[in-house]
Amino acid sequence: MSVKPRIKLDKNQAKAGEIVEVKALVSHIMETGLRRDANNNLVPRDILAKFVCTVNGKVVFSADFEPAIAANPYIQFKFKATESGPVVLTWTGDKDVKIVGEDKITVG
């Protein structure tokens, strides 16, 4: 999979303790596993089930998604800037899909 997520931090430079907002959008079908194709066969589930965000290696936010999350999942959350480092967003899902996106934050 060569999917590239779109990630936007409201600021890349923050003072210690400041709240940073992260918005991320990734292109994915999020097939529910409940739909039937033209031959009335169930279309197998294919979703991104797990999302994790780490800042400088520490998990700040994570989420488990069910098929009730809309296609091309969008996620927005916030974290408190305490140290500089990479902001890594990872989606994992069915069919061994792993999508990784990265940005960075500088505190000071």
Binding site: T32, A68, P73, K78
Partner: peptide, 29 residues
């Protein structure tokens, strides 16, 4: 959700490092 074919939508895991317990996404109903 109480009216979807399956009840679950998502589970969010917050940490004190998050600073604010706020999340937003788009769901199917």
């Amino acid at each position: 959700a109480d009216g979807n074919p399956r009840g679950g939508i998502a589970t969010f895991h917050f940490t004190p490092a998050g600073g604010v317990a706020e999340a937003s996404t788009r769901i199917r109903l």
